[in-house]
């Protein structure tokens, strides 16, 4: 379980997080939504330890993450886009990661995301979509208990996006704690169980999608969210 309590973070004068609270449980896909600059990335990076909050706590399975790094064995992360070193071969990156992480690997992934085709290629030779396939595979590779996926389908080809969605579903069934960020309401509707909507560094809406749909009776999720924001 991930517990985020009253998280604050300022970059200079801009407040990126202003008292964010969030609890994510196993077997649940939580979708972080919100406009650009609302604090989604900062929140995700805080969980990963890339951003060090000014105040507030993040607890994973009853342990505070401050200063540690071992907890990241539990996490699989897919960034929005990474500029991997041009001369690095895909297989070399996998080898480095396998030395950093001791968990078992899910070798099926390699073929599912068609990584074996590009194993010997250098990142400099890969297209953006191909790199994202590698990032996706890395996120799932070590059978993590927690998945943090930043715009997971954004620059994937449709086929890989489908594989990705299937992987998310399967991981959820296996009891994985999944956080995704997304701009696409339809995608969230399709994949997530719950929406956490951020504005100005706070989570302003935190509801289960089922609840929202049941409550409003409205089929279009986006419209419901917009209405909720207006009433707030």
């Amino acid at each position: 379980m991930i517990e985020i309590v009253n998280l604050h973070k300022a970059f200079g004068k801009t407040l990126a997080l202003n008292g964010a609270n969030l609890i994510c449980k196993e077997g649940c896909v939580s979708a972080l939504m919100g406009p650009n600059g609302s604090g989604k990335s900062t929140l995700m990076k805080s969980i990963l330890g890339l951003v060090i909050p000014d105040s507030g706590t993040i607890t994973i399975d009853d342990e505070k993450i401050s200063n540690g790094f071992e907890y990241r064995h539990k996490i699989g992360y897919m960034p929005q886009a990474v500029n991997y070193p041009h001369n690095l071969k895909v297989i070399e990156l996998f080898e480095i990661l396998k030395k950093l992480r001791t968990n078992d690997t899910d070798e099926e992934l390699i073929s599912e995301f068609k990584i074996n085709e590009i194993y010997e290629k250098k990142f400099g030779q890969l297209s953006g979509g191909m790199k994202q396939r590698v990032s996706a595979a890395i996120a799932f590779l070590f059978k993590p208990q927690i998945l943090i996926l930043d715009e997971p389908t954004a620059s994937l080809d449709p086929l890989s996006a489908e594989v990705m969605k299937a992987k998310i579903r399967k991981s959820k069934e296996e009891g994985c704690n999944i956080i995704i960020s997304s701009h696409h309401v339809s995608e969230v509707d399709e994949m997530a169980d719950r929406i956490a909507f951020m504005l100005e560094g706070k989570i302003v809406i935190d509801r289960m999608i089922k609840e929202i749909k049941n409550g409003s009776g409205n089929i279009r999720l986006g419209k419901v969210i917009a209405e909720m924001l207006n009433t707030n």
Binding site: G49, L50, P79, V82, Y84, P85, L100, R101
Partner: peptide, 16 residues
């Protein structure tokens, strides 16, 4: 130039 890759590595279980 290594900034992004360093960031990526830091999402893995290694210390800074």
């Amino acid at each position: 130039d290594s900034g992004e890759f360093i960031e990526f590595l830091l999402t893995q279980p290694v210390s800074r």
